[in-house]
Simulated assay, not measured.
Amino acid sequence: MASITYKNASCIYPGSDKLAVDSLNLDISDGEFVVLVGPSGSGKSTALRMLAGLEDIDEGHIEIGGKNMVGVPSKDRDIAMVFQNYALYPNKTVAENMGFALKLRGVSADERRKKVEEAAKILDLTEFLDRKPAKLSGGQRQRVAMGRAIVREPQVFCMDEPLSNLDAKLRVQTRTQIAALQRRLGTTTVYVTHDQVEAMTMGDRVAVLRFGKLQQFASPNELYDRPANAFVAGFIGSPAMNLVTLPVAPEGVKIGESVLELERDDLTKLSDAGLSEVTFGIRPEQLEISESDGVEVVVDLVEDLGSEAYVYTHAGSGVELVARCNPRTAPRLADTARLRKNPDGAVHLFHPESGERLN
């Protein structure tokens, strides 16, 4: 086990004029589960491959356990990689797949068998040790790939979108198993995904990347409650935060002919910034349907999930808003309704040009 430090680590691919990873700085504690998340092309997989030694570090450096990894071959970094496509040998049994790296190291057959059986017990694979990968389900194959990493007892686990090939139900089940397993083993883990729900439910901390740049590195709760900028606000959360650029009024922000009032501190910050308009954000669960006051909207879609419903609406000015409500009392399609901020709802204000947080 070891801590990991990215210090201004950058990578650029040959023939490109843009950095794939741009001056990344991260401090990952010993035993921590950190998730790198972002849209396609954000640099998250490149950052992981730099850590694993599969991509060159063009500027800055990466440390594992306080040792600079620049120029250190992948095989000497004491890391174990779990890939999206399992990368199992089809002609070998589960036991042989899991113990193959140990065999290459010259570990005795008895010791290999012992370690493989211990890992199989942890992963509930004992009854499958003599099967070939073709006779396993997708989830079982992924657990075999995990077992191959576990038997090596590395300092660091590197996982590159390991659940992408699984169906929705199996993904939920397997991500729970991976998170529980990591906490049991206590091995420092860097996990890459494009799925923000996966990131929020698995990571001790989450690093959000965009165009190779780190946007925010924080706990899931902090990312959700206090996003550093409009990109993080819109990326984290499902459904996404309502984000609209609105004119600033003396009492708040204008949506069509209505004014959504803001707290005095927020109004002061907008005044100090000298803004005539602002990017206004509010989570769907912090909007509620009102009988009399609030913003008048027309219902475009009601998404009934059984335990809750999401109402997709638009205001007269073309502003689109999503609100969460009780499915038993949800309005119908094409109904006119009113939305207001609930008493405990938090409002997020961002600069309309830079996207940086204002409040």
Rank of each mutant, 00 (worst) to 15 (best):
residue 2 A to I: 04
residue 5 T to G: 05
residue 10 S to E: 06
residue 13 Y to T: 10
residue 15 G to S: 11
residue 25 N to T: 02
residue 31 G to F: 05
residue 32 E to G: 09
residue 42 S to A: 10
residue 48 L to C: 05
residue 48 L to Q: 04
residue 49 R to A: 10
residue 50 M to E: 08
residue 51 L to F: 00
residue 54 L to I: 10
residue 55 E to F: 03
residue 60 G to H: 00
residue 64 I to C: 01
residue 68 N to S: 03
residue 70 V to D: 09
residue 75 K to R: 13
residue 77 R to N: 00
residue 79 I to C: 00
residue 80 A to C: 03
residue 84 Q to D: 13
residue 85 N to Q: 14
residue 86 Y to N: 11
residue 87 A to V: 10
residue 91 N to Y: 06
residue 99 G to V: 05
residue 109 A to T: 15
residue 110 D to M: 06
residue 110 D to K: 12
residue 123 L to Y: 08
residue 128 F to I: 05
residue 130 D to M: 11
residue 132 K to F: 04
residue 133 P to C: 08
residue 141 R to G: 07
residue 148 R to A: 06
residue 151 V to N: 13
residue 162 P to A: 15
residue 175 R to V: 02
residue 183 R to W: 04
residue 187 T to L: 00
residue 190 V to M: 06
residue 195 D to S: 03
residue 196 Q to C: 02
residue 196 Q to W: 02
residue 205 R to G: 04
residue 206 V to K: 00
residue 214 L to E: 00
residue 218 A to C: 12
residue 219 S to D: 13
residue 222 E to T: 11
residue 224 Y to K: 12
residue 239 P to K: 08
residue 240 A to F: 03
residue 241 M to W: 11
residue 244 V to F: 03
residue 249 A to D: 13
residue 258 S to P: 08
residue 261 E to A: 13
residue 270 L to T: 07
residue 272 D to E: 15
residue 273 A to P: 07
residue 274 G to A: 07
residue 275 L to C: 06
residue 278 V to H: 09
residue 280 F to A: 02
residue 282 I to D: 05
residue 283 R to V: 10
residue 286 Q to N: 14
residue 286 Q to A: 14
residue 287 L to T: 03
residue 291 E to Q: 15
residue 293 D to R: 11
residue 301 L to S: 10
residue 303 E to H: 11
residue 307 S to M: 09
residue 309 A to C: 06
residue 313 T to I: 00
residue 315 A to D: 02
residue 323 A to P: 12
residue 333 L to Q: 08
residue 336 T to H: 07
residue 339 L to C: 01
residue 344 D to Q: 14
residue 347 V to H: 13
residue 350 F to D: 14
residue 351 H to W: 04
residue 357 R to C: 11
residue 359 N to E: 08
